[in-house]
Amino acid sequence: MPSTMPTPIQYADLSDAFEFASATVPFGPFEQAAFIALDSGKVVYRSEAHDDVLPPDLDDRGRYLPVPTRQDLSLGSRLAFLFTERFLPQDHETVHDYFTEHGAYARFKELLLLRGLLEAWYDFEASETRQALRAWAEEQGLQVR
């Protein structure tokens, strides 16, 4: 039975697990996921690409918490629109049009490069991801260090 104390986890471990889980969405070659052991904060990785020995009770949500993906935390096109709203309001329509077709992020990043905002985008994306991941962890009873 899990403890009522918050499960401690290092932010770097949580971030790595998040990136791993997100790698399959939507273009990863293998299905993969990451889970946090609620008794220890240890991350368990599951991937079709590896035949690792996994805990037999990995599907027990009282013991293991699935790590969300970028899509689970709405960190896809929503972030691009938010960034555009704050830093490129004049390009709102253009960016909206990009995201109606395949290859949107490549075109979005080309626009950012043209406007001299690519590094600002990467900083913004990292900050928003960090905030969303920490908020999710807190909601789940994790203590991020």
Results as ranks from 00 to 15, higher is better:
106 A>E: 15
95 V>E: 05
75 L>P: 03
81 F>E: 10
111 L>C: 05
30 F>A: 11
96 H>C: 05
50 H>K: 11
59 D>N: 13
141 G>D: 07
25 V>M: 07
78 R>S: 12
116 G>C: 00
133 L>D: 00
79 L>S: 02
136 W>L: 03
67 V>W: 00
17 A>S: 08
132 A>Q: 05
51 D>H: 11
142 L>K: 02
76 G>L: 08
17 A>L: 04
97 D>R: 13
136 W>F: 12
136 W>P: 01
101 E>K: 14
27 F>N: 11
23 A>R: 15
123 D>I: 09
63 R>L: 11
79 L>G: 09
119 E>L: 14
7 T>Q: 03
6 P>M: 07
12 A>H: 06
35 F>Y: 15
86 R>P: 00
57 D>K: 05
13 D>L: 05
101 E>H: 12
116 G>E: 01
87 F>P: 00
133 L>Q: 02
11 Y>V: 00
60 D>G: 00
130 R>L: 01
69 T>I: 08
94 T>H: 02
141 G>N: 03
106 A>N: 09
83 F>R: 09
15 S>A: 15
43 V>H: 03
52 D>N: 13
1 M>T: 14
21 A>M: 01
23 A>E: 14
133 L>S: 01
103 G>E: 05
98 Y>H: 13
75 L>Q: 05
20 F>K: 02
93 E>D: 14
69 T>K: 06
16 D>V: 00
62 G>F: 00
141 G>M: 06
132 A>V: 02
